[in-house]
Each structure stands twice: as C-alpha cells, then as structure tokens.
Design a protein around this nucleic acid. Structure first.
Length: 195
DNA sequence: ACCGGGATGTTCT
DNA sequence: GAACATCCCGGTG
C-alpha cells in the first residue's frame, strides 16, 4: 500500500492551468470514501469569461478570491452542489472544478448517497454526482483541503498518473472555446464527452 | 447510443 | 426576470 501524502499549499498556489492537469490521478478523500480524479476543468478568474469570478467578487464567489487550497462550493441549477479547489495567488480567483473521480474506497457509502444512480459509472461521473457521492454540500465552502478540515482532502498516493487529454469545457456559454478541461481518455467515470 | 425537456432556486442585472 | 460550470428520465433508433 503506497504512502498517502496530502497535497501541500504550494501545490495549489500555482496557476490553475498548471494545477488542473497535475490533479489528474490524485485522490479525493472524505472519511472512508476516496476516488481517483479523472476529470477536471480550470477556471482562470478575471481572465476567464467562463469563470464565476469574471465579473468580480460577489458574496457567492468570496472563497475563490481567498487563499489557495480551500474548497469553493457553489449551488448549480437550483438542485446541485459542485466543488472547486481554489488555486493560484490569493486574490486571482483561480479554481479547478472537480468533475469526476473513479471510486476507490467507500463505494457502498457512495451507492447509499447516490441511490438514484442506476449504472455503476453514474456514481461519481459529473461535478454534482461526485459531490453527492462524497457528501459534499454548501457547508464545505471555504474548508481547507491542506488541513483536511472536516476530513476532506486530496492526496498523492504515489501512483503513476494516467495520461490526461485536453478538450474544451462542458456546459459553458462563455469561454467555450478554451481547451481547459483535462480527462483520462477511455475511463468510464469521465462525464461530458469531448466534442 | 443519442437526444430533448423538465426540475428547481440562487444569484446577479 | 433571465441565466445558470447539471442531472435524470423517457422517448426513439
């Protein structure tokens, strides 16, 4: 069993376009549940028309403008929670959206939390699905992954990261041409298909 | 497999 | 009042 090492603050303090591909293959951990990250998207603050931070700081986006390594959780389409890791220098509002993981441990707990999922690959394929599977909601907004607040963190278990392919991001009406999504090609847990 | 529409409510203009 | 970093279900082929 390889040693699990928490990602340090310096890992997240880089530009989101560097952090995003490096997060592929890392492991998201919450209590007994864990999953290997297979799909992410980078959001680049004021430089990025697709980012919630593009039009400046608002009550909702406050966490994104804070220090790297904290979790930015937002409510989507009136139904779902989605989670990002804040990246880059404080105030730049960079973030990486966690879009999909491959379940590793705690799969029974994930199934219980995702009772509606019919197929196994629907357990954690998609930003809202993975939050539901891991029990992440708005109360986790602002928690520090480096300190593993509330048991939530991201670790490097030493496994060789699978190669990541790049594509445009999913579901945007602005910034839709920027190739800022990374995913493991062929992994069944990846959500939105690249064009 | 692929596609279309409804759910649902916060956020910001 | 419109937009929204989504998901699920039921249709069709």
């Amino acid at each position: 069993m390889a040693r699990r090492r928490r990602r340090p603050r310096s890992f997240y303090a880089r530009h989101p376009l560097e952090v995003a591909p490096d997060l592929i293959g890392s492991v998201l951990v919450h209590g007994g549940r864990s999953g290997r990250i297979v799909e992410v998207e980078a959001y680049c603050g004021a430089d990025d028309p697709g980012s919630h931070a593009f039009r400046g700081r608002t009550p909702r986006t406050t966490t994104m403008f804070g220090p790297a390594g904290h979790l930015y959780v937002y409510f989507s389409y009136g139904l779902h929670w989605c989670a990002n890791v804040v990246c880059g220098a404080e105030g730049e509002a960079g973030a990486v959206l966690l879009r999909a993981v491959a379940p590793v441990t705690g799969i029974e707990a994930m199934r219980a939390a995702r009772a509606r999922a019919r197929r196994e690959r629907d357990l954690t394929a998609g930003p809202a699905r993975l939050c539901q599977a891991f029990g992440v909601d708005g109360s986790f907004d602002g928690t520090d992954l480096v300190k593993a607040e509330r048991g939530l963190t991201i670790v490097d278990d030493g496994a060789v990261a699978p190669p990541a392919a790049a594509s445009t991001r999913v579901g945007l009406s602005s910034g839709e041409d920027l190739p800022w999504r990374w995913y493991v090609r062929g992994d069944p847990n990846v959500s939105g298909r690249p064009r």
